[in-house]
């Protein structure tokens, strides 16, 4: 083997990493100190982008909107995924069918799912409001009421993604040795006590993984509000990523957009560190 053979073997990855990861990250850091609209040359403006960011109320509203989305999306996702995984973990007839069925939305295109849900949640012709009307319950403006719109999107996003987390929890549940439950049976534990004192602590690593994955995917919320509400009503469904996208590709504020992206990445990192501490201690 020649001396350079190992380098040759890892070169495709290094090349990919350099072009698609390292360069964009470094370039975006450089961009945060510049003003650039793609066409004109970059102009160094020091910390002006950062100063502007702290005064930009719409950005902070978008961050808050995203947090509101996460506050519903993550617990809902966790609870639904754990409960469904528990049910699917039992040896019931058709378990394989249900496992596949629940995973299906994950592999369907986000745009398709979003359009489908837009129809379902439509104020006048949506299936959900028709059902409410049939029950003589007043219709709800699922996507037009500022107090409701973001939560409707959160439920939809949960439906779309929960299949993946069900699979993760199923794997977690199946890795808990049967003997722990048998020992608990002899100790006199009820089903709930077995779940609370054995299952939950034993699937703690999976819970952490799911919380982090859904936090990161939740923070990158874009397709759903972009198609369903375009950030409205009254910017209540404007997500942080959507705002960054607008700054970059509608207003061509590339430098400012990079600053927003950089700052937002730090916020995500901070949240994940907090989650890690909390989940590891409490669950």
């Amino acid at each position: 083997m020649k001396k350079w053979t190992p380098y040759l073997l890892v070169s495709p990855y290094i090349l990919h990493f350099a072009v698609f990861v390292a360069f964009p990250v470094l370039f975006s850091v450089v961009l945060t100190f510049h003003s650039w609209n793609i066409i004109s040359p970059m102009q160094y403006i020091g910390l002006a982008n950062y100063k502007h960011l702290f005064k930009d109320r719409l950005f902070w509203q978008a961050v808050w909107n995203t947090v509101r989305f996460l506050l519903v999306h993550i617990p809902l996702q966790l609870i639904v995924a754990i409960v469904m995984a528990e049910l699917l973990n039992r040896t019931v007839r058709g378990a394989s069918f249900f496992r596949a069925a629940f995973f299906l939305p994950v592999i369907v295109s986000g745009v398709v799912v979003t359009i489908l849900w837009q129809q379902l949640l439509s104020f006048n012709s949506g299936l959900l409001n028709r059902l409410l009307a049939a029950l003589s319950v007043p219709r709800i403006a699922w996507l037009d009421d500022p107090a409701v719109a973001m939560y409707s999107i959160a439920v939809m996003a949960t439906w779309k993604n929960v299949g993946l987390y069900i699979i993760l929890f199923l794997v977690g549940l199946q890795s808990v040795p049967m003997q722990y439950y048998e020992a608990a049976d002899l100790e006199g534990a009820t089903n709930w006590q077995k779940f609370r004192f054995i299952t939950l602590p034993m699937i703690n690593p999976t819970i952490f993984t799911v919380v982090v994955l859904s936090t990161i995917s939740g923070f990158s919320l874009f397709v759903e509000p972009y198609i369903m509400t375009q950030g409205g009503p009254m910017n209540t469904t404007l997500s942080a990523v959507m705002y960054i996208y607008r700054q970059a590709f509608q207003y061509y504020h590339m430098g400012y957009s990079a600053t927003l992206g950089f700052c937002f990445a730090l916020i995500i990192l901070f949240v994940v560190i907090i989650q890690r501490r909390y989940v590891e201690q409490e669950v």
């Binding site: 003997q179 722990y180 048998e182 020992a183 049976d185 002899l186 100790e187 006199g188 534990a189 054995i198």
Partner: peptide, 16 residues
Amino acid sequence: PKDRDIAMVFQNYALY
């Protein structure tokens, strides 16, 4: 099992 008033020591101990 819990109503039989027995205790069992498992092969792999089954300690939580």
